[in-house]
Amino acid sequence: MAATDNDSLVRDFVNTFNSKDAAALGPYLADDVVFHNYGDSPVEGRDAVVALWRGVFANFERVEFETVHQAVNGDVVIAEQIHGLSLPGGKLAPVMNMAVYELRDGRIAAWRDYTNPGYAASLLQA
């Protein structure tokens, strides 16, 4: 993790998803990070968040995340993203996502993803 500012840190973090290596997400996260994905219960702690993404990566053949727009105000970063996901044998589904990151001491301490889960499911089944 070589990012020196919050804008670069979050962009690098999002690009790390493309490797489908859950362990590579860990260095970006605070020990007590709280991840809240719209519609799901919050996941607390670095190890729990990494384990969650290990499971997600195992379910998808391709993961291609992209930042469309990003705004930074101090330790808060708001990012419009496309989460490209494909199930085995399926087409890449471009799931639109808004994410809010709160940073502390150069790591993500809080992370909230806002996606329409029904629309995402319909894209993945196409």
Rank of each mutant, 00 (worst) to 15 (best):
K91D: 09
A24Q: 08
W111H: 11
I108V: 14
A79E: 03
V50M: 04
N116D: 15
I78F: 11
F35R: 01
G84I: 06
I82H: 02
F57E: 04
A121I: 12
V49N: 01
V100P: 00
N59Q: 15
L103T: 04
T115D: 00
A93L: 12
M98H: 06
S86V: 11
Q70R: 15
P27L: 05
D12R: 10
Q125G: 08
D40W: 12
A2E: 07
W111D: 00
L29Q: 00
T67M: 07
A79G: 09
Y114K: 05
D12C: 03
N59M: 15
N116Y: 09
K20L: 06
S122P: 01
R11S: 09
V43M: 04
N15D: 11
D31S: 12
A79W: 05
K20F: 08
A109R: 07
S86T: 08
E80D: 12
L29E: 00
F57S: 08
Q70G: 07
A51V: 02
N6M: 04
V50W: 08
N73E: 13
E80P: 07
N37F: 14
N15S: 13
F65A: 09
S41T: 10
L85F: 15
V34T: 14
T4W: 00
P88V: 12
A24V: 07
G106Q: 01
V49Q: 03
D21G: 05
F60Y: 15
G84H: 01
S41A: 15
F60N: 09
Y101R: 02
N97G: 09
R54E: 13
L124E: 09
L123I: 11
D31K: 12
L85T: 07
V34E: 08
D21A: 05
A79M: 02
S8F: 02
E66T: 13
R46D: 09
A48Q: 04
F60G: 06
F57L: 10
G84S: 00
E44D: 06
R112P: 00
L103I: 05
H36R: 11
Y28N: 05
L123H: 10
A58L: 07
N37W: 06
R112F: 03
A99W: 08
Y119P: 00
P42D: 00
L9M: 04
S86N: 06
N18F: 03
P42N: 01
L52F: 15
N59D: 12
V76S: 06
D5I: 10
N59V: 11
A22I: 06
S19Y: 01
A23S: 13
G90D: 04
A99F: 06
G90M: 10
L52M: 13
P42T: 03
A109E: 05
Y38Q: 10
L124D: 07
G26F: 07
V100S: 01
E61Y: 13
V76H: 07
A109M: 04
R107F: 00
V72R: 01
G26Q: 05
D12M: 08
G89C: 09
N6I: 03
D47G: 10
A126D: 09
V95H: 04
L124H: 10
G55L: 05
P94L: 06
R104Y: 06
